[in-house]
Nucleic acid binder design. Structure first.
Lengths: 209, 209
DNA sequence: ATAGTTTTGTGAAAAACTGAACTAAGGGGG
DNA sequence: CCCCCTTAGTTCAGTTTTTCACAAAACTAT
């Protein structure tokens, strides 16, 4: 199987989002052209992206929305429920824990952990209470959590990642501003990086006038 | 001036983060090789990225950390203080408003807005109180805010973006799961997309064994 | 049927990005 | 001073990703 571009995977997740929206609006099918317009990309990009995985459309017609949703679900691996633990109950950790959208997309937050003993026991939502870091490994094993969110300060992110990996976690979303060394896939989300790249676009636009 | 790759800009923000860390540790200079190792990329990539903007190092020696920090600051446009408004005081909006890292990086959150009249007047931090959407345009003009964070539900993101653009906002960070139509730069941060791309890596790893 | 229109899937070309290799500096030690 | 090691800047080749362009398929109307 030939390699699939990383940007293609990202776009697949965005196609999914568009298709959900269209589905809610009662639409039944869509063309690559319209889907591309929704995302401000080229229609050929949409078709190429999908063609990496098979043929899902019908010439002259377009794509059946429900069918394509199912297929993208399968391709991305979101056709099963994933259990997620969050490490670090600061601003970001708590926001993620409370973020409804994640639950809706087949991710279930099963635990939130913090080193701060004053935070342990505090309720985050109706069903989530902050646990102690001491219980991390046991909890992950007992609950079969496979995904972890690192929302700790940068200094402790690496050791935390190592504990997670040893406990059987299979993928990490890292909000800490560090590059981790570990053998499971990691997605980095450094919020400040988005701010910085944004202002670069803002200031460099000035010269293009 | 020839176009600069978007990935280069993103990496520049990450170089900055690494240099800050090194600076805190009392380091004075660094080689492209070590910087590359910190980020798990190739050293030639580091040199290539920097060379788009000038020559900042000394052969045989490396880069002076303080000098390179200043230069990247200038390149990215974070050598001035940017005023930021946040639209939507839900989970994400509030978390961003309270997020210390952003303030540290020369972004100042000056206002938080929500349509919910029950939220208006509520304190988010010592200095931030939720304002009414009715006051948005006047507030942006009076406070000279240039950056906005959209943390609203998807349905209202587009009209909000249009109001922001008309009010003089020059760049938008969009947490809402939509693609906006507007004439100012936008950075999209759809948290659920990160979860989805992550699990794709996780499941596709299974086959690569 | 047949012609016309729409739209997919795909191979090939173009563009964008990365990486290896080379050249030129810079410093240290004998 | 000369040799050797280190490391930045640059060039060019290789790889990846996007875009183009067109054949094939499917529907509509006549």
């Amino acid at each position: 199987m030939n390699r699939i571009p990383k940007p293609t995977i990202r776009r697949l997740a965005v196609y999914y989002r568009c298709l959900e929206r269209l589905s809610e609006q009662g639409e039944e099918s869509i063309s690559s052209k319209r889907l591309a317009q929704m995302m401000h990309i080229k229609d050929s990009q949409v078709r190429k992206d999908l063609s990496y995985f098979g043929t899902f459309g019908r010439r002259g017609i377009g794509y059946n929305i429900q069918y394509l949703l199912k297929e993208i679900q399968r391709i991305l691996g979101i056709n099963k429920r994933w259990k997620v633990v969050i490490i670090g109950a600061g601003n970001i950790g708590q926001a993620i824990a409370r973020f409804k959208q994640i639950e809706k997309h087949n991710f279930e937050i099963v635990g939130v952990f913090d080193v701060d003993v004053k935070k342990v026991g505090k309720k985050i939502t109706d069903v989530l209470t902050i646990s102690s870091m001491d219980d991390l490994e046991k909890f992950i094993a007992q609950n079969h959590a496979e995904i972890a969110v690192i929302a700790t300060p940068a200094e402790v992110a690496q050791p935390v990642a190592e504990r997670l990996e040893k406990s059987g976690i299979r993928g990490i979303i890292c909000f800490a501003p560090v590059t981790l060394s570990c053998n499971v896939p990691v997605e980095y989300v450094d919020i400040t990086v988005f701010f910085k790249t944004l202002v670069h676009s803002v200031v460099s636009q000035e010269y293009n006038i």
